[in-house]
Nucleic acid binder design. Structure first.
Lengths: 174, 174
DNA sequence: GTGCGTGCAAACAATTTGCACGCTA
DNA sequence: TAGCGTGCAAATTGTTTGCACGCAC
């Protein structure tokens, strides 16, 4: 099975998963489902891929870009190629372990594809640029209507709200 | 006033606006509001900018990219620089004459910022890539809730549905 | 041994920017 | 005449790809 795969690769760092990735906090990721998805895609869980996953697990709710992931991996663990980061992100997205999001800041960003927290939306502050998450989903009825009215079968949706966050609203000046 | 500005520039084409841009069809654009917005921004309505606007008025509902606008302007009117198209799109977006949209196809796209048709959404077909529009807006109550619950004052929102359009659903094979 | 995954550098594509020049206010 | 707007080419930036190598199966 895959669990045994991730010992080492290219003679580099060995990652201790005795405690799993679940240590992160509230935004838990089920390593087992990561293993399963890799297995189903018959992909190896290499140290580089593990590191990428680990970065996300240690930065819950952060919408990281490829460059940011690369920097974090380098800083916290070891040097890996930026191209490898891109390829890992691509792979993990295809396996639905990550989700690609676009905040129109010129680069793609990624977050865990948390099926439990499924369909959360984003509140993008136009002043400070910070992105909050919003868990509500009231769009099901709308999706049914779209199917009936237009014959368009909705598979997924993406909703972003642009506005002013509480913190910025409180800053009276400027 | 601005109306008299757009005679010619660099000795090139003169555009006849005796009939205005409103000829386009259902997706009418009020030239007067375009004038007003340029005036408020104290920007000139140059022939190049007019041509860009004209292209959008002649392609209602089409979500054009910079490159596409450039090609269309060149084909239908005259050769202008691609950089100028980019700068025009940027300016017109800032003046809220156009709206920038992102369909994750690797380039920014633009459409008229139709305040009348305000808040229409997009149905993106994951098979053929075509984008339909959907005029409904049921998000007002949700926005009020977000303000109350989170203190986040929503100014605008963007909603995209991904799914299979009717045409593709009918193609049984492949 | 075959092939997947990686690192590096080169290639790409969309977009931005520097600069000289012409036209407009 | 001062400065905005343009065209062109060069520069940037995010992302992808070709290739040789090494480890895993």
């Amino acid at each position: 099975m895959l669990a045994g795969l991730s010992r080492q690769y290219r003679g580099t760092a060995v990652i201790d998963y005795s405690q799993g990735l679940e240590n992160g906090g509230m935004h838990m990721v089920h390593l087992s489902s990561v293993y399963r998805k890799l297995e189903e895609g018959s992909k190896r869980l290499t140290p580089q891929r593990e590191l990428v996953i680990r970065i996300f697990s240690e930065h819950p709710g952060e919408h990281l870009s490829a460059e940011e992931v690369h920097q974090l991996v380098k800083k916290k663990f070891q040097d890996i190629g930026l191209a490898t980061v891109y390829r890992s992100l691509e792979l993990l997205t295809q396996l639905e372990i990550l989700t690609r999001i676009n905040f129109d800041d010129g680069r793609s960003r990624y977050e865990f594809n948390q099926e439990e927290t499924h369909r959360h939306h984003h509140l993008v502050c136009v002043r400070c640029g910070r992105v909050e998450e919003y868990g509500e989903d009231l769009l099901d009825t709308l999706e049914t209507r779209i199917l009936n009215e237009r014959g368009f079968a909705v598979l997924d949706h993406e909703l972003k709200f642009y506005g002013v966050c509480r913190a910025c609203a409180l800053k009276k000046t400027n």
